[in-house]
């Protein structure tokens, strides 16, 4: 554990909490892509199956359980409890275009052709693109509430901080995992345009509004 990974994990946790609290307090999931949240639930489920086979640390187990539970709670709020506020007319990204290629790629490029390992690889590939339905929704409506922007910033920062963690681990522990690194770079790059808007607009107190 190093400072980059810890802050990355905390940033990830913060993102998930911001989203849950936002939906709960406003009693609304307007502006949130249910599809991205379904993809994240699928990501955590397929990645953390090793909870039953491999023990790493209490921290690791605890965080995995939190991520799984929080993602299912978010999906429940969007598709059940606050269904009436769900923006399904704008949430039209075709998720099969993300799920199927991620799955095929995980069969082709993986560390080991074993069920748990392929599901882990699939989750890494899928996570890297799982935010696309959300970014698509923001681009379709042309704007995002500040709280949604804070959520996206915290979620994007998490993988960016993991990149620093991987650089650190490469030098300090000679440890690296190319699959995670390449997918992590892709994931972080997808947020770059959003990061730019966040710094230039949201932090200056303006609403995130895309040019018409």
């Amino acid at each position: 554990m190093n400072i980059f990974r810890l802050t990355g994990d905390l940033s990830h946790l913060l993102a998930i909490i911001i989203l849950l609290v936002k939906i709960w307090k406003t009693r609304s999931c307007a502006g949130i892509s249910g599809k991205s949240q379904l993809l994240f639930a699928l990501v955590y489920t397929t990645r953390y199956l090793d909870l039953v086979s491999t023990y790493i640390s209490a921290y690791n187990t605890f965080m995995k359980l939190i991520f799984i539970c929080a993602s299912y709670a978010t999906v429940y709020l969007i598709y059940m409890k606050f269904k009436a506020t769900y923006d399904h007319n704008h949430d039209t990204f075709r998720v099969e275009f993300l799920i199927l290629p991620s799955f095929v790629l995980s069969l082709l490029i993986n560390h080991d052709f074993a069920v748990l390992e392929i599901l882990w690889t699939f989750s890494i590939y899928l996570e890297s693109v799982a935010i696309l339905p959300q970014l698509f929704l923001v681009s379709k409506t042309g704007e995002a509430e500040s709280i949604t922007s804070h959520y996206l910033f915290a979620l994007g920062s998490y993988r960016g901080l993991y990149l620093l963690n991987w650089i650190y681990r490469y030098y300090a522990e000679s440890h690296y995992d190319l699959i995670a690194i390449v997918a992590g770079v892709v994931q972080t790059v997808l947020y770059c345009d959003f990061f730019y808007l966040y710094v230039t607009k949201v932090l200056k107190g303006k609403k995130l509004q895309l040019p018409a």
Binding site: R5, D9, H12, R47, D50, T54, I56, N60, M63, K64, F67, H111, D112, A114, L116, E117, W120, Y162, N165, S174, H175, Y176, D177, L178, I179, A180
Partner: peptide, 10 residues
């Protein structure tokens, strides 16, 4: 070492 079946990150 690259790759191991034990993924210790989240």
């Amino acid at each position: 070492k690259s790759s191991s079946n034990k993924h210790d990150e989240l």
